[in-house]
């Protein structure tokens, strides 16, 4: 009896069951809760697929941020009276009053599309060559020239620095877009509630130092093991959101300019590196001298952690704080 196989079968069964119920749920709250548990199973699946970096990220995002955003959005949709879930869902999914809610034809169309996509992808995946392992070998061969020991970090912050830099730009664009939607210039005055909650304040006071430690630990791990700026940034974001919920000083008390500085720190740091290397005559753009690359990557990771934390917590706070506006 192969136990690994049994575990995988259970995991697949759980994933399919949860996603099926998730799609079929008429109650938005149930769907939200199912989505949170889906993240948990997914994280287990990433571990079985031997992608610990993604499992870490999924753990942080799935357990923390996704729950906050979805539950907060649910609170925003919830009508004044505590209605039963059933009547709520059909009202709540209407953003655009002109277009009707999904009807039978929509569902049929969606199922046909998804069905044919699945079939097509299955065919394509079965057709893939079995032995291909991409650029793994090349990455390991070039690892000693990259300045770090963990291959994922080397790819993200050295070999494909340009992509990571642009991804941080995507985060900046997302934060600015939400700001536009909310018609705001910064996060000040976004207070969660006037009611003090002693229990929550104590809890957050206790958790915050541990969270800071974990942020630093994850950041330090990124150099040689799964971890790094993104995972650390998500934990930082969770910490900032908790502080905000408990009424402590959080990013909402930052002045506009300080908040913007931390928002773009990662993007600007990488931009600075790009500008310096591009104007350096003997170097190619984005090329780091080997002896410096470790230090440069560390500095960029610190800035990126700050940015990711601030952007993600701002997104959550802006969408949650909206209810009061």
């Amino acid at each position: 009896m192969n136990l690994t196989l049994l575990f995988d079968v259970f995991l697949i069964a759980a994933l399919l069951l949860v996603s099926w119920r998730l799609l079929g749920a008429s109650d938005l709250f149930q769907a939200t809760v199912l989505f949170i548990s889906f993240g948990l199973f997914l994280s287990l699946a990433w571990i079985r697929l031997q992608a610990p970096d993604i499992a870490l990220a999924e753990a942080a995002v799935g357990a923390g941020l996704a729950g906050v955003l979805l539950l907060g959005t649910f609170k925003g949709l919830e009508p004044e009276e505590d209605r039963e879930g059933e009547n709520l869902s059909s009202e709540a999914c209407r953003l655009d009053p002109i277009s009707p809610c999904p009807g039978r034809a929509h569902l049929l169309l969606a199922f046909t599309f998804v069905g044919s996509m699945t079939a097509l992808l299955l065919l394509a995946v079965l057709d893939l060559p079995a032995e291909g392992d991409g650029l793994t070998l090349l990455v390991f061969q070039s690892l000693d020239r990259s300045g770090v020991e963990h291959p994922v970090t080397a790819v993200l912050l050295n070999f494909r620095f340009y992509d990571t830099w642009l991804e941080l730009g995507v985060l900046v664009a997302a934060a600015l877009s939400i700001l536009c939607v909310r018609n705001r210039l910064d996060l000040r005055e976004l207070r969660p509630s006037k009611v003090p909650d002693v229990m929550l304040r104590r809890l957050v006071m206790g958790l915050t130092p541990i969270m800071i430690l974990v942020v630093v630990y994850l950041l330090w791990l990124g150099d040689h093991a799964p971890g790094g700026a993104f995972q650390a940034g998500v934990v930082l974001a969770a910490m900032l959101i908790l502080l905000w919920f408990s009424g402590h000083a959080s990013i909402t008390s930052l002045s506009r300019i300080l908040w913007l500085f931390s928002l773009i720190a990662g993007f600007a740091m990488m931009l600075l590196a790009a500008v310096i290397t591009a104007s350096w005559p003997e170097m190619r753009p984005l090329e780091f001298a080997e002896e410096w690359s470790g230090a440069i990557i560390l500095a960029i990771e610190v800035a990126a952690t700050l940015s990711i934390g601030v952007v993600l917590s701002s997104l959550a706070i802006l969408s949650l704080g909206a209810v009061e506006d």
Partner: peptide, 8 residues
């Protein structure tokens, strides 16, 4: 970019 040739 970065002096890393194409496949990488």
């Amino acid at each position: 970019l970065g002096g890393w040739a194409a496949p990488l």
